[in-house]
Design a protein around this nucleic acid. Sequence first.
DNA 1: TACATATGTGAGAAACTCTAACATCGTCAA
DNA 2: TTGACGATGTTAGAGTTTCTCACATATGTA
Lengths: 200, 200
Amino acid sequence: MAKSTKRDGYHHGDLRAGLVEATRALVEEKGPDRFSVSDACRVAGVSTAAPYRHFRDKEEMLRAVALEGMLRNRDGFAAASEIHPLGSLDAIAAMGMAYIAFAQAEPGVFRLMFGLTREHDKDPELMEQGRANYGILLQHMAARMGKEEVDDDVAKRAFPLWTFVHGLSFLLIDDKVSAMELDLDIAQVVRANTRRLLAD
Amino acid sequence: MAKSTKRDGYHHGDLRAGLVEATRALVEEKGPDRFSVSDACRVAGVSTAAPYRHFRDKEEMLRAVALEGMLRNRDGFAAASEIHPLGSLDAIAAMGMAYIAFAQAEPGVFRLMFGLTREHDKDPELMEQGRANYGILLQHMAARMGKEEVDDDVAKRAFPLWTFVHGLSFLLIDDKVSAMELDLDIAQVVRANTRRLLAD
DNA sequence: TACATATGTGAGAAACTCTAACATCGTCAA
DNA sequence: TTGACGATGTTAGAGTTTCTCACATATGTA
């Protein structure tokens, strides 16, 4: 039965994948700061020394989850961008909603994908994936501005859109929206302000 | 010489304040996730059991720093809002810049003020301060819209402005701006997009 | 088959959070 | 003035955690 996450004897089968999944689940359940390697080991059913055959340290386990999240996020992002015309307000707003939906569905992983530790910036793979995601938005923006190629102007007009949905995502998962007693229709907020940010 | 942070004998003088300051410095130096109570004790020059006379746990120490940051942030925020006419683009953009400047000056504390843990939401004092800060923006927005009182419409028009500078703050401190090879004049970005978000 | 390599285990060192019992200091009522 | 008490510090230590080291077991290849 090929490789599986199920234990089969002395060896695990695919412990790396098993640990990444356990880590993802625990990060989501308890929050990134309450995650422990030992917990992941308990879930995966291995000793606490086992992970160190596959990851340099705890940090690297979390980075693996962040990277996997970035890839998964890209799917939703790309899908949203493709159901509307290139460069349309509909397409751009849909991408924003996909970004926010991911943050709300997996706040733990989302937090991991950004911020949590400065070492993430040094991870070239993670950075590359982030750039690829942003690239999709850039394509739409270039089309909208009637340009063949993505240039600095395009990048500078696209950036505020990212900024906006990024900030909204954090305010939502940190519960600031309800704390301020705001009763918002998120889709409406995204669409209206995307339109404003695109205006000129 | 009244209360001081300096050690004077068996007792410390004002250990609570000393620990908050040590915690703030360490959070800024190493990041919130690398902070340890023991480190703070070493800096303050007390035993590792001492903090528990003043704080329930590590979490509460960090919350104290977040609250103190929120108060300090408010000073800059209020100051920025007062040097320009009530409700003017200048005033609102200046407040945005103050917000971002704080994040860049104290990224560790800024991260603490939002997110890091969900327990923060339950801290009524912290929530109250956050609301007070947001209230300053609401005043300007109400004036701009020619209203006497802050109502739902005002809150809904102000919210995107917060969202925008909040997102920009995080992208800056997480180094995403340089990672995407964007060379931005932040003041320019804030002003241009604040104007767009206010338009209609 | 036999050897090299990959992947798991158990034991333990070092650090950390937090508690419990005890020590010291300041203060206020008698 | 004094002495009891509450506030605030210390020492010792239990329990958890990260990570390393030596050793065990599985897998693949000559």
